[in-house]
Design a protein around this nucleic acid. Sequence first.
DNA 1: CAGGATCCGCCACGATACTG
DNA 2: CAGTATCGTGGCGGATCCTG
Lengths: 121, 121
Amino acid sequence: MSRKNACSAEEAAGREVCTVLDVLGRVSGKWSLGVLSETTRGPVRFAELERSLNGISRRILTLTLRQLEENGLLTRTVYPTVPPKVEYTATDQARELYARLTGLTAWAARHSAAAPHADAP
Amino acid sequence: MSRKNACSAEEAAGREVCTVLDVLGRVSGKWSLGVLSETTRGPVRFAELERSLNGISRRILTLTLRQLEENGLLTRTVYPTVPPKVEYTATDQARELYARLTGLTAWAARHSAAAPHADAP
DNA sequence: CAGGATCCGCCACGATACTG
DNA sequence: CAGTATCGTGGCGGATCCTG
């Protein structure tokens, strides 16, 4: 979960790059996109995410959720029930961003290249 | 420069996520976007990049260039002159991808939120 | 000038145990 | 159930030195 991105220097034209870097930094975690994918479909509980994202550890899941929340991409709702219940939902901003990101698959489709094997009809 | 992204598991809906992850992985380096930014403007020499991207080390620059080249995002042209001369240029694929990525700044503009200070026009 | 070879520090990620 | 607290690890990135 990369946090800091001061965009320390680069050149003048780098302002744009800097912004892009910042945006990508907000979903930089290995599982961030997976979490967004799940939470975009509707409210999801912690344990659900833990199962959906097969292989993620509790710690990383927590950190990822916190990061996304900090960046205004996730809404955390706590139900003060006796066994705790917490739901996470993607914000509108997150949905927009996620849409733009999945839009990259269009690019990937047009250039299936460089892939280890690929398919190619 | 993260290379491997087996997208080991996740869930079914994760295919999309997997693809996005793969695309982002191709420009994952700390300086990859900076390099793309420069090479998109036209052919650039190694030393030029080294200066433009202030703070980058020779090794990382080389690795970044190699990665981008491997992924078909950069064209490497060697001129067999006596002092070596090598030029790097972004491919069309790279320009397309870079355009989509800079498109993220639009999103960032609409949600200046979460930034340390800033917001409210 | 362009880049290979080394050595090293740091941080994201992972595995596990414990708790309200 | 939903986390927090600890400890360990791999690999990216940085600093140099050397060469065709």
